[in-house]
């Protein structure tokens, strides 16, 4: 594999992010893998563990424009996609682009908004374009949505339905930092001021180059078989309400490629699939015996241990 300069930049991104968000190397890499695989990212956890910070850090380090949208229950679709306003001077309607017209949309607490508003965003995620008042407007390239959400059992939330969860390639949880990281966090500099001074490590062009490199990572027939076997198993086994969709299987392979790229390999190993698997399947497979809808947590390991390598 020839050494792209972008690849070194990628290493810098990981290192810099690790300096701001302490002890979350795997979450950061998963988030990056998601973006390299051209997927949207969902960060789910309790308030205050650094979801929004991670979203900001990624946008900044990748050198992308970003807009933060705080979702609330009284928000309307127009607040996201924009609205046409009558301009008295020119005597015509003029489109005021909404916050979605940017490279990275940080959709904070997406599950606080009503399903109608959620769907406006989710439509844009899949189509990478927005249609307002008959005119179709393309979104910039690259385009990512990094959404954060609170666990579904918190008060005042509208849980995303399964079909919309499926649009997020990877869902990660941050969790509490470990003791060492937390001590360092408490002793260290204010994160907000660190964010303000954080330099970009990469240009958008480099990011696009890396996305293309990701797609060229070799997936051997044996590995394709493995991904297929995993998808097939989720459909046949009685443990989940529904199996993985083909979109999810494609996403699993794409994310595994991105992880292989992050690991500096030119081919995907089963290990890559197994590492990204929890982030791909946990929000898609609902266990049959899970009455809380919080996720039983053992789905990924159960799945990995049930499917032998072909």
């Amino acid at each position: 594999m020839q050494q792209l300069p972008a690849l070194t930049a990628l290493g810098d991104v990981v290192r810099s992010a690790n300096r701001v968000i302490l002890g979350k190397d795997k979450a950061i890499k998963l988030a990056l893998a998601c973006l390299l695989a051209r997927g949207h990212l969902l960060i789910e956890d309790l308030p205050g563990v650094g979801k929004t910070t991670l979203a900001h850090v990624l946008a900044r380090l990748l050198g992308l424009d970003f807009q933060r949208v705080q979702f609330t229950s009284d928000m309307l679709p127009a607040d996201i996609v924009g609205v046409s306003v009558f301009d008295r001077d020119s005597g015509s309607f003029r489109f005021h682009a909404g916050p979605i017209f940017t490279q990275v949309v940080v959709a904070d607490e997406i599950n606080r908004a009503t399903p109608k508003t959620q769907s406006a965003l989710l439509e844009a995620m899949e189509e990478r374009q927005v249609t307002v008042e008959g005119a179709t407007r393309p979104l910039p390239e690259p385009f990512f949505v990094i959404a954060t959400q609170n666990p579904a059992h918190q008060i005042g939330t509208f849980p995303l339905p399964e079909s919309q969860l499926d649009r997020f390639l990877i869902r990660i949880e941050l969790g509490y930092p470990d003791p060492a990281a937390e001590r360092e966090l408490l002793a260290g500099e204010d994160r907000r001021s660190m964010l303000a001074t954080l330099p970009a490590c990469m240009t958008p062009a480099q990011l696009i180059e890396l996305q293309q490199a990701t797609r060229k990572i070799h997936a051997a027939p044996a590995l394709i078989d493995y991904v297929q076997a995993i998808a097939a198993y989720t459909r046949a086994a009685p443990d989940w309400h529904a199996g993985l969709s083909p979109r999810a299987a494609l996403g699993l392979l794409a994310a595994a490629r991105a992880w292989a790229l992050l690991a500096g390999r030119d081919h995907v190993l089963p290990e890559d699939v197994q590492i990204v698997l929890p982030g791909i399947v946990e929000h898609r497979l609902r266990p049959v015996d899970d009455r809380t809808r919080l996720g039983a947590g053992d789905t990924p390991s159960k799945l990995i241990e049930a499917v032998p390598l072909p």
Partner: peptide, 9 residues
Amino acid sequence: WHTWEDPLV
């Protein structure tokens, strides 16, 4: 060796 285990792991 578990049949699901990655060779390198």
